[in-house]
């Protein structure tokens, strides 16, 4: 045993301080104090859910002439749920919703990430660009919808710009063509939601320790290598959160779209939300609507739990 070797022996012990456990009594008291609030919250969120579940098992409609608590008189034994499987319009709407999701979310992600990378460094006029960039997010969706509705008119600014660029008059009927209407709707969605992606990713990017980036640079890593080995692993969690938020939001895409196309031409841009809205307000078959809504809730919840688990695992890798 040399004087030098002695302290080296204990080096592998991680430094940690065993914090005293919070006392159980304190925890119990806290539970009791927050109980009334928790019950209230539970009631507010649970009641509509149960009501929905109840109605979804009946043929009840507001036109049926009886109050909803008596809907059991119109009990239909899961017929709504079996109908749902053979509802082609529903499946097309779901397909369109997924299409919007598959196109818009990656585009928003890549644009957001590019912009975030740009804004992680300083450049002149950063604040002004920053404000302009996050403006779309602050526009009321209905207003945004109206704005894009105007932009994509056949005599609207989009065609005007295309005309002056191409030198010949362009009169594309954007919102009357099934394919072009879909494109227009997606453009609007990307315009409005890229800023959110940008903000979340920027927060993550700024959280990557400067020193680690510098260390990687000094060790000879180029920009792409730094991004791949330092930035991406460190942003895994936040990327999953950002994507999860946008995927869920995509399922709910409604207001902008409804104002621009009303789901048309025909049903060419009809997404889940628009479809539900239509059958709720036009067909008034609320039992069936409740069944669809519940089915989507279940699917989304399962997807969310899966995403959360992935996140937890990603964090576990780091700890």
């Amino acid at each position: 045993m040399t004087a030098t070797a002695a302290p080296l022996k204990d080096l592998s012990q991680p430094m940690s301080v065993t914090a005293p456990k919070p006392q159980d009594e304190g925890r119990k008291l806290g539970f009791r104090l927050t109980l009334p609030a928790q019950v209230l919250v539970l009631f507010i969120s649970l009641f509509p859910l149960l009501m929905q579940l109840y109605i979804s098992l009946t043929d009840w409609s507001p036109l049926s002439g009886m109050a909803w608590p008596r809907a059991w008189e119109m009990w239909n034994n899961f017929a709504n749920y079996t109908d749902l499987i053979s509802d082609n319009r529903l499946w097309s709407a779901l397909g369109r919703t997924l299409l919007v999701m598959v196109v818009c979310v990656p585009v928003e992600f890549l644009l957001g990430l590019g912009l975030a990378t740009l804004f992680a460094d300083d450049f002149p006029g950063k604040r002004i660009f920053y404000s302009i960039l996050i403006m779309p997010m602050m526009v009321v969706p209905a207003v945004a919808g109206y704005m894009f509705y105007m932009l994509f008119q056949s005599g609207g600014p989009v065609n005007d710009i295309l005309s002056s660029l191409l030198g010949t008059p362009v009169t594309v009927a954007w919102l009357s063509d099934p394919v072009l209407a879909m494109i227009a709707v997606m453009v609007a969605d990307i315009w409005q939601w890229t800023p959110l992606m940008f903000l979340i990713l920027l927060a993550g990017l700024v959280g990557v320790p400067e020193d680690q980036m510098r260390a990687a640079t000094l060790l000879g890593a180029g920009p792409w290598q730094r991004f791949r080995t330092i930035v991406l692993p460190r942003m895994k969690t936040i990327i999953i959160i950002a994507l999860a938020i946008r995927v869920i939001e995509c399922f709910k895409i409604f207001d902008t779209l409804y104002i621009m196309t009303g789901g048309g031409p025909g049903v060419a841009t009809e997404t889940i939300s628009v479809y539900i809205y239509k059958i709720t307000t036009q067909d008034l078959i609320w039992g069936y609507v409740a069944a669809i809504a519940l089915a989507i809730l279940v699917v989304l919840s399962v997807a969310c739990v899966w995403a959360m688990k992935r996140m937890a695992r990603a964090q576990g890798d780091r700890a």
Partner: peptide, 25 residues
């Protein structure tokens, strides 16, 4: 070579991945 005061260790990697980082890059 630069050793930072807070070490700037890549905490999402193993000790080996830290040590051979520069060589791999």
């Amino acid at each position: 070579g630069f050793v930072f005061q807070n070490y700037a260790i890549f905490t999402h990697m193993t000790v080996r991945q830290n040590l051979d980082y520069g060589l791999r890059m």
